[in-house]
């Protein structure tokens, strides 16, 4: 488990990092917490010539709220999020998602930005960020752009980021009144990745019917996705067990479903519906109780 040689850069500011990346072109690779990239380098599946370690850029490690929007710096570790009192109060879905990631060691080192940029089709964050309708901030020497979460994940381990762009922060709306959310997951027993992971947010109207439901699903397809069929089926309905179950049955509609040694496409499709139902039930319960 010995990587190929590489040159190491440790910029101190985002500006410094972006000019480095602009110069290095496709030979450069950003290192954040190192929990996706380093294992691949050790296996020699990835052999970047230059590593740009953004781990020392202090401005990237924040978690704050501005006008009802939560902003999380790319370098926030899963543990930072899991243990954030602000998020526990204002965006509990992120806390619940963080808790389900890997193990203690992974959560202590791995970062939300690194995980999202890696775009592993079974990672947990994409489901949550999609369900929250978040956006991703990317900075390059060419400037900053905001990428809506639903445009961010393109394919297996492929995001909308250009090679010279740094994912600097994630912005998600705080939990509104009459809102509830939940993240549920079937862990792969070896990797801890999601065989299926479902993040749901439910907003109820004053009458107690579903004003808006959002469902992000990971682990099922080559990229995490919004289950729009589920969302549409539930909109305007009362969050009864029957309505939720009927809506959840659309969890994998029109989706090309993954198949691997642990779970066939059939089984994953089934799990997607079950976990969607359970996540929606829990989110709706919480919304009703809020």
């Amino acid at each position: 488990m010995i990587p190929q040689s590489f040159e190491y850069h440790a910029p101190r500011t985002v500006a410094e990092a972006s000019s480095l990346l602009a110069r290095l072109g496709s030979d450069g690779k950003i290192l954040a917490g190192g929990h996706s990239l380093v294992p691949m380098m050790k296996l020699r599946l990835a052999a970047p010539k230059h590593i740009v370690d953004i781990g020392r850029i202090a401005e990237l490690a924040h978690i704050r709220e501005e006008d009802g929007t939560i902003q999380i710096g790319a370098l926030a570790t899963h543990f930072n999020i899991e243990s954030s009192p602000l998020l526990k109060d204002r965006c509990p879905l992120l806390v619940e998602t963080a808790r389900e990631i890997g193990d203690v060691q992974v959560r202590n080192r791995g970062t939300i930005g690194g995980s999202l940029a890696h775009a592993d089709p079974a990672a947990d964050w994409p489901a949550a960020i999609l369900a929250l309708g978040g956006e991703i901030l990317a900075v390059s020497a060419r400037g900053e752009r905001r990428i809506p979460a639903r445009d961010f994940f393109l394919d297996v381990m492929t995001s909308a980021l250009e090679f010279d762009e740094i994912l600097t922060a994630i912005r998600v709306p705080a939990l509104p009144a009459r809102g509830g959310d939940a993240y549920l997951k079937l862990h792969h027993p070896a990797s801890g990745f999601a065989v299926v992971g479902v993040a749901a947010r439910v907003l109820l109207n004053a009458q107690g019917a579903v004003q808006e439901a959002a469902v992000g699903i990971t682990g099922v397809a080559p990229k995490a996705y919004r289950a729009t069929g589920v969302e549409a089926a539930l909109r305007g309905k009362s969050p009864s067990a029957r309505h939720i179950e009927a809506a959840a049955s659309h969890a994998a509609d029109g989706i090309e479903v993954n198949s691997d040694l642990y779970a066939s496409a059939d089984y994953r499709r089934h799990l997607a519906a079950i976990y969607t139902r359970r996540a929606l039930e829990r989110a709706a319960e919480r919304a009703a109780a809020s």
Binding site: L43, H188, P189, A190, S191, F193, L261, Y262
Partner: peptide, 9 residues
């Protein structure tokens, strides 16, 4: 094909 601890549980 279960050649790493990502697949061998």
């Amino acid at each position: 094909i279960t050649g790493s601890l990502m697949d061998y549980a």
